[in-house]
Nucleic acid binder design. Structure first.
Lengths: 229, 229
DNA sequence: CGGGCTGTTGACGAGACTCAATAGGGGTGG
DNA sequence: CCACCCCTATTGAGTCTCGTCAACAGCCCG
């Protein structure tokens, strides 16, 4: 946990209250610069984290030098859980001023043993994280680039908890999207252009667009193929 | 939980003892036919499960009719955890005679509140499942088919806990592998042929092969590409 | 004002998917 | 017990998507 200005006991704004907040004295909140590491792959997994605001990315670097983003972290997302003693992936802030809260893992686990409410909350959190990753396996398995990007827009719209008519705000770069979907940047860009051409989205700026046809986004590229059994 | 012959309090053989086993009276163990559903997508998530022996698959059906296997379940794997009230995916036995144990979720959660050891064990299980899915996101993100299939062989070799020189036994069909890696059956078959041709594996039967060059399997297709961004 | 970063678009080629044919195996029913 | 058939696995040929290389425009920041 080597980072810049540290603030104690500061509940992040805009996030619903949490049983974990009652353990404020244990928590350590800090503000990160863009690209700043929260932890590195191989670091001892001493803490659990929650992203307060901004954007984070959990990723691995492939032998070829290519980056694979395993999970994009939005406000309220918990991360850093691992069964092993060391983090298998790295995590870093993807935006300037990203706020991250850290709890010491050992102490929290001890407290959970005496406080069922905390224990249940932690189970809930890991299961939520699990659901996110399952959805992710599905997204990565999608056949076409159009379907991947379309599904990504819907996912982001849902995860940022915006109304049906509200535009999606993509705070991450095209490179982040590409590495998240295992596509090239050019393909992501082309897919967005194509979705626009087909009238599924209307972009105002490159990082903000309105979803016109949500169901189309989900189903694009899903050509009727017979089920392989 | 609508299934054939039900056996109570039968600890599955070949699996290490578990705190959960002390709740035998709660558990319900059953033997499944090949292709038999354990639960369907949309079913109320009333139970947690462990696969005793055989093989299971957790999957989703895409609009196009294509199947995406979200997780392959091996002996000892726990599954069925979800944050929601309903299972987002379906799970079924992939082999004849697959043995599955089910615990009622509500009761287990109540017990976990009073027994820290059980609570910790459940946390551990979900986190293990989490790790498996993260590794999966990585596998699906791999670029080439050769790399996907190579990585799959290594994953199966590790997960079945066999010695370095022991052959990998693939109890699942090529279709299962294809749907797991989001490839077509033909591509999987061709990749295996190519790996054999390159001397990375030596197959005895279609479902059993010896890994000769493990590091090659991992790195295949990882052509040196410059890091995006 | 200049330089690097980001985003978009075009041209080209490699790799994966589809369609198709064939061989082997296991299970079922006659 | 045998024969048939369906399921599984493999291989070939053609098409098409996506990755790569390249060029270019806009923007922020120094």
């Amino acid at each position: 946990v080597s980072a810049s200005p540290e603030i104690r006991c500061v509940p992040p704004p805009g996030v619903r209250p949490d049983p974990l907040d009652s353990f404020g004295p244990l928590a350590l909140t800090r503000r990160c610069r863009r690209g700043q590491r929260i932890y590195d792959a191989g670091d001892p997994a001493t803490h659990w984290y929650r992203l307060g605001s901004g954007l984070g990315r959990k990723f691995a670097l492939r032998p070829g030098g290519r980056r694979q983003i395993v999970d994009l972290l939005l406000s309220g997302d918990f991360f850093g859980f691992t069964a092993r003693a060391e983090h298998p992936f790295a995590a870093e802030a993807a935006l300037e001023g990203t706020v991250v809260t850290a709890w010491p893992r050992r102490q929290l686990e001890r407290l959970a043993d005496s406080d069922p409410r905390l224990g249940a909350r932690i189970r809930e959190l890991t299961i939520e994280s699990l659901s996110r990753l399952q959805a992710r396996a599905l997204a990565l398995g999608r056949a076409s680039a159009l379907e991947k990007v379309g599904g990504f827009l819907v996912e982001m719209h849902e995860r940022t908890r915006r109304g049906p008519g509200d535009p999606v705000v993509l705070t991450m770069s095209r490179y982040d999207i590409a590495d998240y979907l295992a596509l090239s940047v050019e393909t992501v860009s082309r897919a967005l252009t194509e979705l626009r051409r087909r009238g599924a989205i209307t972009p105002s700026t490159p990082h903000c667009m309105t979803i016109l046809d949500c169901s189309a986004l989900r189903g694009f590229g899903a050509g009727a193929r017979p089920a392989t059994r």
